[in-house]
């Protein structure tokens, strides 16, 4: 068991435990904080896969910016278990069935998938390093990249238009 494996198990357990806590926390602010822990753990996995750039961008964008906005909303709305309206019982049962069906589909798909031959390469490969990633994005895949940036721009313009409306 090398250091990579120790770290892998540690990060995996951290990610799964905090993901469970995101779901079962009564207080939405706690859920968001646990979600940040999940993102940190996933960034750790990226580093294990030698994708440092991806890891740090995941931290900056998701954990550093988007989750702060989530936290803003939850803190200002002051949601908690007392003010949360009780859901209909039938709705709960429907949710359980739908979630269970999704789990079933995913387990079935994973069972059929060919996992033995496709092992993740730990600590090797350099596609995740910033130089190679930049070459891939701006050289080989430049058109999809630009189209997705236009998509972001249109979303931003849309937000401004909606925000301007009185």
């Amino acid at each position: 068991m090398g250091i990579t494996q120790v770290l892998f198990w540690f990060l995996s357990i951290m990610a799964i435990l905090s993901a469970i806590l995101v779901v079962i926390s009564k207080n939405p602010v706690h859920s968001v904080l646990w979600l940040i822990v999940v993102f940190v753990a996933i960034s750790g996995h990226y580093i294990l896969l030698n994708a440092q750039f991806l890891a740090i961008v995941n931290l900056i964008v998701y954990a550093g910016a988007i989750m702060v906005l989530f936290l803003f909303v939850f803190m200002l709305m002051n949601l908690n278990s007392e003010t949360e309206p009780q859901k209909n019982r039938w709705l709960k049962i429907a949710g359980v069935i739908a979630g269970g069906a999704l789990l079933l589909v995913m387990v079935a798909a994973l069972k059929r998938a060919d996992l033995k031959t496709q092992v993740a390469q730990m600590n090797t490969g350099d596609i995740g390093l910033i130089h190679n990633l930049g070459m891939a994005l701006f050289h080989d895949y430049v058109i999809p990249f630009e189209i997705s940036s236009v998509l972001f721009l249109s979303a931003m313009v849309g937000v401004v238009v909606i925000g301007k409306k009185d």
């Binding site: 904080l33 940040i36 750039f53 740090i56 961008v57 931290l59 900056i60 954990a63 550093g64 910016a65 702060v68 936290l71």
Partner: peptide
């Protein structure tokens, strides 16, 4: 970028 990442966590 590491510095940025850590600074952005400083908000918390």
């Amino acid at each position: 970028l590491y510095i940025f990442g850590v600074v952005s966590m400083g908000v918390y």
